[in-house]
Design a protein around this nucleic acid. Structure first.
Length: 426
RNA sequence: GGAGAGGUGGCCGAGUGGUCGAAGGCGCACGCUUGGAAAGCGUGUAGGCAAGCAAUUGUCUCCAGGGUUCGAAUCCCUGUCUCUCCGCCA
């Protein structure tokens, strides 16, 4: 959501910024609506001022028992009433029309974001580890999982449909171990406060973070008008909606391990095999609420919090700075972490760490008082730390052995009761 | 699910049609006092929008949205949330 004042002052820059998102210039249309609205407001205010003044006199006349004068004044003011009502109605309509457009415009990209059309134009900015080489042909995770008898897509399809999986036994435990470890790491080492949020959410919350109104098709709506969370970014960021924070309490850092639900409406045919793209997956999310001055540094800090998970799991990865065409609608700047998957012989996204600036804060009305006591919108950030389902894929593929067993990363062994390897149990 | 009571500023709380954007208190800020602090005293202390270089002025906002009225924190309707009792329930 944008401040119309910003558009008023920097119409050209605004249109240029939207142009980077491939959008037509909007400012002319918006400013026409804005001018009309301001005119209406000015006229309305004037009518209200007159009405209020006379109404006050009526009150005084009544107080003095001067009924005649009161009647006279009431007659005088009656036509103003219609004017005020009409003005209020116009203002309502015009504000709605303006906000409808403002609510569907994407965030402005940071200057550091490179131009580009799609993920092929993302820029690699760092790399950790080397893709592992195997003496045998590396398999994909779903082959390994099915051979172990602990990853069952067929049964999942029977009870839930496509894009679901049933995990069992040691693999199920490994999934849980990954989630526990990641959440512990973010809360114990990186200063995030653990949160257990609601998984069903109101429309307002999804509007706040930007999933609504434009991306309703990507999430599941319940029969009572709520939404299954597509990511815990939504509840965690909305924790501060409609609040006035003190600068002293910032930054706030939240983390949660939750299932996420996505309809994957637009991705028919993509990643249909295996666990890469599911309707339901677990994710450890990080959210930070901070000041405009500190948000850039917070972004780097959060990126580091995500990177360290992969490094501690000893998984090779690279850091990508997303280009203009691939950066999410709500974000000014996004880093993706891509983990190496030997089975796919490719780097695949496992974390996305983004800075939203004040774009979400405006939609949520989340503010803080600065040192001068003036209310300001906070800056919000979110990142995966990490996607658990994809981390499971990465561990299985990177730690696979020739005989189909899976070694367990050192850092996870305490979470697996000391177990060091997953073998087929016949 | 049924019945009832409520939602007022950063917080608590008064206020049932007019001079109420709102008493009082707490908190906070500044000043006085003090060797320094506490206490005490004094002053100040909501946000949005519009106009203005500014001081300022107007307007809107007492959960949200509509409505009644010359005039609404106060009356009516709808929604929402909280609390109490009953029912159901992991």
């Amino acid at each position: 959501m944008f401040d119309i004042k910003l558009i008023r002052n920097e119409a050209q820059a605004f249109d240029t910024a939207l142009g980077r998102r491939g959008l037509e210039p909007q400012s002319a249309n918006l400013l026409t609506l804005d001018n009309k609205r301001r005119q209406t407001v000015a006229e309305l205010n004037e009518a209200q001022e007159k009405r209020n003044a006379v109404s006050k006199q009526i009150g005084q006349a009544k107080a003095q028992g001067d009924e005649v004068k009161a009647q006279e004044l009431m007659a005088q003011v009656s036509e103003l009433k219609a004017q005020v009502q009409q003005g209020e109605e116009s203002e309502r309509e015009q504000t709605l029309a303006l906000n409808d457009i403002l609510a569907t415009l994407p965030n402005i990209l940071s200057a550091e974001v490179p131009d580009g059309d799609n993920e092929n134009d993302n820029v690699e900015i760092a790399r950790f580890g080397e893709p592992k080489t195997f003496k045998f042909k590396a398999k994909e995770h779903f082959i390994l999982g099915e051979d172990l008898g602990e990853m069952d897509f067929e049964t999942a399809a029977k009870i839930a449909g496509s894009r679901f999986v049933v995990l069992k036994g040691q693999t199920a435990r490994l999934e849980r171990a990954l989630g526990q470890y990641m959440l512990d790491f973010q809360t114990q080492e990186n200063g995030f406060t653990e949160v257990v949020p609601p998984l069903l959410l109101r429309s307002e919350a999804l509007f706040g973070t930007g999933q609504l109104p434009k991306f309703a098709d990507d999430a599941f709506e319940t029969t009572d008008g709520r939404w299954l969370l597509p990511t815990s970014e939504v509840p965690l960021t909305n924790l501060v909606r409609e609040t006035m924070l003190n600068e002293k309490e910032l930054p706030l850092r939240f983390s949660a391990l939750t299932p996420c639900f996505r309809s994957e409406a637009g991705s028919a045919g993509r990643d249909t095999a295996g666990m890469i793209r599911q309707h339901q997956f677990n994710k450890v999310e990080m959210v930070a609420i901070t000041t405009p001055q500190n948000s850039q540094a917070e972004h780097e800090r959060m990126l580091n919090s995500a990177k360290m998970v992969l490094e501690n799991l000893e998984l090779p990865y690279r850091v990508m700075l997303l280009c203009s065409g691939d950066t999410g609608y709500s974000m000014t700047k996004t880093y993706d972490l891509e983990v190496w998957l030997p089975g796919q012989n490719a780097y695949r996204e496992i974390s996305s760490v983004s800075l939203a600036g004040d774009w979400q804060a405006r939609r949520m009305n989340a503010r803080y008082r600065d040192e001068n006591g003036k209310p300001q919108f906070v800056h919000t950030l979110n990142g995966s730390g990490l996607a658990v389902g994809r981390a499971l894929v990465a561990v299985i593929e990177n730690y696979q052995q020739e005989d189909g067993s899976i070694a367990i990363p050192k850092i996870l062994q305490p979470y697996m009761g000391g177990q060091k390897i997953i073998n087929k149990i016949s």
